[in-house]
């Protein structure tokens, strides 16, 4: 038994390392395949006026004069020593940048998921409680709105209306971390979390509805009802409890995506998260910033998947038993 578990752990670790290596190669190659480099990204068309000697000096400065293989393995080797690279634009190491941006994104992702669950699960349960009824239609409309309203539209509208009508725009102020000013931080996070949460609530609502409908038709529900289990207890304990696995899967997936940074929403609400870090890195062609940050995001995604797997064991005794 112990050997079996050890084998599973080893397999999991090996597949994680393999995934991360694949991501590293892919992002490295893709970045080089994109036209332009850090010199043209910084100077734009002004780069056309550089003399060969100036160009050479700049290539040396940005490390672009090294062969690609050397660049790749130097970067990879440095990762093992905790050196994720350096951002000349920010005059900070990528590790420092990530240590600032990742917690912001994690906070935003958690808040968004909480809001999405608060919207999606009750509405999904309600919709499933009487399929085809007006309450089901209402749930479907909310779900359709969540899926079809683009986040940039919702975000811009929310920001414009609240600023113009109520003078209410915490995101117009300098960003505050929870340690600096927890209340302002919460204020600055609530609107982007609401926009993201609304979008994510839709698939959660649909998954909840489908899962609940499926479980409701199971024999044990009928038996429980026949035995006189109160309806609320039946819905929550027996139905929702058994419908949790697909909901957890969907939530885990969405959470993983959120950890990749919600670039558009972060841009509109000026939230200095990891999405903005990658975007600015791409715009400036700061290879080290993009490569290392994407790798951190990939790692976060893998960890969330692991966590989701672990959660199955908690919410579903059948998984534990198997």
């Amino acid at each position: 038994m112990r050997g079996f578990v050890r084998n599973r752990v080893v397999r999991r670790v090996a597949s994680t390392v393999g995934t991360l290596f694949g991501v590293a190669v892919l992002v490295f190659v893709m970045l080089r395949a994109i036209p332009g480099d850090q010199i043209t990204a910084g100077l734009g068309t002004e780069a056309a006026g550089l003399t060969p000697a100036q160009l050479q000096a700049l290539e040396r400065y940005y490390g672009l004069d090294q062969p690609l293989v050397t660049q790749f393995f130097t970067w990879l080797g440095n990762l093992f020593t905790g050196n994720l690279g350096y951002s000349a634009r920010n005059q900070q190491s990528v590790l420092e940048l990530t240590l600032h941006s990742l917690p912001v994104t994690v906070e935003l992702a958690v808040l968004s998921i909480v809001l999405a669950l608060l919207i999606g699960v009750p509405l999904g349960t309600l919709a499933a409680s009487r399929a085809g009824s007006p309450r089901d239609a209402a749930g479907q409309i909310v779900s359709l709105a969540g899926l079809s309203i683009p986040s940039f539209l919702l975000a811009t509208t929310l920001l414009s209306v609240l600023s113009a009508s109520f003078g209410f725009n915490p995101n117009g102020r300098a960003f505050a971390t929870p340690a600096e000013d927890p209340l302002l931080n919460l204020q600055q996070m609530i609107l982007p979390a609401l926009v993201l949460g609304f979008g994510i609530a839709a698939p959660i609502l649909r998954t909840t509805r489908a899962a609940v409908l499926e479980v409701r038709s199971e024999d044990f529900v009928r038996t429980a009802r026949a035995k006189g289990v109160p309806e609320r207890r039946l819905q929550v304990r027996h139905v929702l409890g058994n419908a949790l696995v697909p909901i957890v899967t969907m939530t885990g997936l969405q959470f993983g995506y959120l950890l990749g940074g919600a670039v558009v929403v972060e841009q509109i609400f000026s939230v200095p998260g990891i999405g903005r870090q990658v975007l600015l890195g791409i715009q400036q062609k700061e290879y080290a910033v993009v490569q290392s940050t994407v790798l951190v995001i990939a790692l976060a995604f893998v960890l969330v998947n692991l966590l989701t797997d672990a959660l199955y064991r908690i919410v579903d005794p059948r998984v534990r038993a198997s």
Binding site: L159, S160, S163, G167
Partner: peptide, 9 residues
């Protein structure tokens, strides 16, 4: 657009 919103507030 967000800058304009920040000016309004």
């Amino acid at each position: 657009s967000s800058i304009v919103a920040a000016m309004q507030s």
